[in-house]
Structure formats: C-alpha cells, structure tokens
Write a protein that binds this DNA or RNA. Structure first.
Lengths: 255, 255
DNA sequence: TATTTATTTCCATAATTGTAGAAGTTCTTT
DNA sequence: AAAGAACTTCTACAATTATGGAAATAAATA
C-alpha cells in the first residue's frame, strides 16, 4: 500500500503546476491549454484558474489569456528586498568594524524584543558585546528604540507598554510614553546613542536601516567602552550613519 | 441563509493569508505566531507551512522563523520580465529622465492599488518620489486614475468604490463618481496632471501606455516640484506623451 | 457543409484535507 | 522548583473539493 493510486492532486500543487507552466513558457496561456499541459481535468483547471484570478495570483490578458498575477510580483519584491538588505548589511558591518577597529552589530526586531542577528568583533581585547542570537527587550537598547521609530504613535506606545521591562542594571527607561517619544525623535535623527544602560561603562551608537517604504528593518550599531565613545563621538556617529545610508542606497540603485 | 457558517478555509486562502502576513510585516514569523495572527488552528498552519516549505514557497530562517521562499521571487521576476512593455518603458524612462533632468516613474495596477515598478531618479537632490515597490490606492495619483481609463464606466466605478481611500495629506479625491469621470477624461486626453495631492508641493505629470487592444498597461510619469512643473508645463506634457507613444509603437513591432 | 478542435460551464460523488482536541517539548517567568 | 507560555506533533472525522463525465458554443479545418 505504499504505492497508492494517486487519484487527486491538491489545490496547492495544481496551482504551482499552473504557475510553473506560465513561468517556463514566459507567455500567457489559455485555461484549456493549461489543462492539457498539466494533464489535469479541464473542470479542475477552470475552477482553480477562476479562484486564482480572483486573488490576483493570475491575471487575464486579452480575450482568454491567463498570465501570472501582480500579487506574485509583490511577494517576489518583498522576498528579494529582505535578502538584499541583510547581505548588504553584513558586508557593510564587516567593513565598518575593520575601519574603526570596533565591534559592530546588526540587530532586528522580533515582536517586543530585539535580536542581535549579526556581529563583527573588534580584533582588540575589549569584549562586552552580546553574541549573535541575544534577545533583549526593546527598551534596553538604542537599537531597540530605533526599530520602532517608523511605527505610528499608538503602535509604538502599545508595544512598549506590553514589552518594556526593567533592565538588570536598572538603568533602562521603562515608561512607555517617554520611550515612545524618544524612539520617534531618534528615528527621525537617524541616530540613537546610549551610554551605560544595559551594561556599565558600555556605549552603543546605532543608526536605522530602512526599506523603501521607510520601515526600519534593522539597525547597525557600534558597541564600545564609554570612554572611547565620548572621545570620538562625532566620527563614530557619522560613520555609523554613513554605513546605514550605504546599505539603503545599495538597494535603491537596483533595476 | 446568505450568511453561512464558514467552517473551513481552503488551502489557497490559508496560504495567501500566510504570504500576506509575511509581506506586511516585512520579517519572518514563527509558525505559531502565524497561526495566532491568522486566527487559524495551529495544526492547520503547521501542516500548511510544512507543505509550502517543501515547495519553496516559504523558507526557514534561523531556528523557527518562517519567511517567503525563493520560488516567489522566480514568479515575480517572470511576471515583470514578460511585461515587455516594461523593458521598452524602462529604456524610455531613462532617456526621458536624462533629457529633462527630472525623476521619471513607471507604474502599473494591482487590483485597486497602483505600484511603482520602475524609476529613474534625477541626478539632482530633489527627492520626493516613492521608491520601486511602493503601493498606493489608485485614487491617490494621476497614474492611478489613468490605469483605469480604458475600462467601462461600470467597472471603473466599482473599482473606485471598493478601493478609494483618503490619502495621508487628505487631498486626494475619494468620490467614486468624480474619480471615474476624471479617469476617463484624462485617459482620453492621454494626459493626467496632479499637483500636491499625495505629497505637498509635488507635481506628477503622467501619460498612459496602452497595448494594441487599447488597455492601459502602465503609465509613465514625471515627478517634480510643483514650481518647476508649472514653469515648463507645455514641454513636460509633450515629452511625457511622446515617451508613452514611443513605447507603444516599439511594441507594435513585436510578434 | 461536415468534422474536428478549442473553449467554457455544470453536476454528483468519492477522496482528500482542514480542523478540533489533546498531549508532548522547550523556553520563560515566578 | 513550579507554573506558565510558546512551540510542535499527532489522530480521527466531518467538511470541502478535485474529479469524471457530459453538454454546449465557438473557432478552425477538412
């Protein structure tokens, strides 16, 4: 019984057969032709095509031509945008770390938390940065606040209300209203700086990386001793902002 | 009896719920979170996610993150490539942008929305144009209206009724009847001009790109400061119309 | 004109699949 | 250590749906 007579094919597989055929042929086909080419019953294809048309996964061209739908392009663009952002961000992170000789991190949001998703360690000895995978509440870090900066007031407030928690050092701001305001200000300045909030004597200088719609996808930040941060403040803030900008424009220049 | 108790949701709709959620959030989610956000039973989502993963419609990132899959990019790219209008349009877009020293965009329709599918930025600093991938309701822009111009009265009215929404600036027309009439007039004039509706002090001068059957496939438009638009109105409208015409005739020579 | 092929729609039914429910893990928080 | 939340997997069954078959135009071909 391991070898069953497969009599029916599920909606997803049939849909993919259709999409694959159109993709291969690179041109519209009729529903009837789709039925013949897939070997599926005509009634099946007609019903399915209708359903997919309604949902913009397919589109009509001319009288009875069926072609891929605009919805697929939306998904495709979103998929690629994110891939590109992180490939580009990783490259820039390494370059920046090399340049300054400091530890650089890439962080992203995961609901009410912030996760370190990439790190380039400084070759030096000072080692205070959290490892890749570390998750902390958004209100603990400069990056965390930036990651909410593009959202509307209500949403920021809600997320901070639900997720803000005292840090271990007790230094992190926990008031949702103040956090929300700060997040917006820093986001608009494209810069957030934090001295000694999550750990003592550690500074973090962060800039937001936004997609074409203005949403903050990630942050790039320099993590270093407070003394060094104060000493080279202007250069460091400029550099991290430039890196964020570089990542963003590297994507904008695509065809 | 018109309102049935819909007990089950089909595979396609559930899949699209998942893809839409990921597209909206612009970041990976867990299967569990997908279940909660869609309101679907967890077992349903887990099974479906597994199936979609197998077929590369979704991909895993990290430990338990679910993200859009590479297959979607393939479809998306094919969708875009086939629109041979766009190859030609892109070329002409660049030429026009170079000629005038202004930002030029190509836009297409996606149901009740308009998507920016191509852009040539002016070398200058003025930068107000929305990036590639931006989607806004059809009633927000001159291009949006043109994209419905070839449809019959009833259809235009229906689409505007279903999709027209106030813009952020509150300046966009939202009345379906007026929109529908305007769309037709502009389409017949092969020109739509809009001053400061989607953004302040920004003008958009758009012309329709039609296929051999007369359907508006896309638009080409100049996006620039309102002052410059008024100053060179005649030249700009003439140029953008010429570009649209050039694209159309370039396609007429195809098989 | 006759004949075939292409195209679309409809119905009844078997076959599949989405769902409820529960139980088992792993990770956080108390 | 205990409790809870987040996460994952499993089973059995009812609800849905893919399918075969047929009918009916329209278009192409003989």
């Amino acid at each position: 019984m391991t070898e069953k007579t497969r009599t029916r094919v599920g909606a997803i597989d049939r849909s993919l057969q259709i999409l694959d055929l159109l993709t291969e042929r690179h041109q519209p086909m009729t529903a009837y032709d789709l039925a013949r080419s897939t070997g599926a019953p005509v009634s099946t294809i007609y019903k399915l095509v209708e359903e997919l048309l309604e949902r913009s996964m397919l589109s009509r061209v001319g009288e009875n031509g069926i072609w891929l739908g605009p919805r697929l392009m939306r998904y495709g663009l979103t998929y690629r945008a994110r891939m590109d952002v992180f490939a580009e961000a990783r490259r820039e992170m390494n370059r920046l770390s090399e340049n300054l000789g400091e530890t650089v991190q890439i962080c992203a949001r995961d609901e009410g938390m912030m996760t370190v998703i990439g790190m380039a360690r400084a070759s030096g000895h000072f080692n205070v940065a959290s490892d890749v995978g570390t998750r902390v509440p958004l209100n603990w870090t400069a990056s965390g606040r930036l990651l909410l900066g593009h959202l509307d007031d209500e949403t920021r407030l809600r997320i901070f209300t639900e997720s803000a928690r005292p840090s271990e050092t007790g230094q992190a701001e926990t008031d949702p209203a103040r956090l929300s305001r700060l997040a917006r200000e820093e986001f608009e300045a494209r810069l957030a700086v934090q001295m000694s909030a999550s750990e003592f004597a550690v500074a973090c200088i962060a800039a937001p990386i936004c997609d074409e719609s203005g949403a903050c996808l990630a942050t790039i930040s320099i993590v270093l001793p407070e003394t060094r941060a104060r000493a080279a403040y202007d250069e460091l803030t400029r550099e991290v902002q430039n890196s964020a900008r570089t990542i963003e424009t590297a994507l904008g220049r695509r065809g």
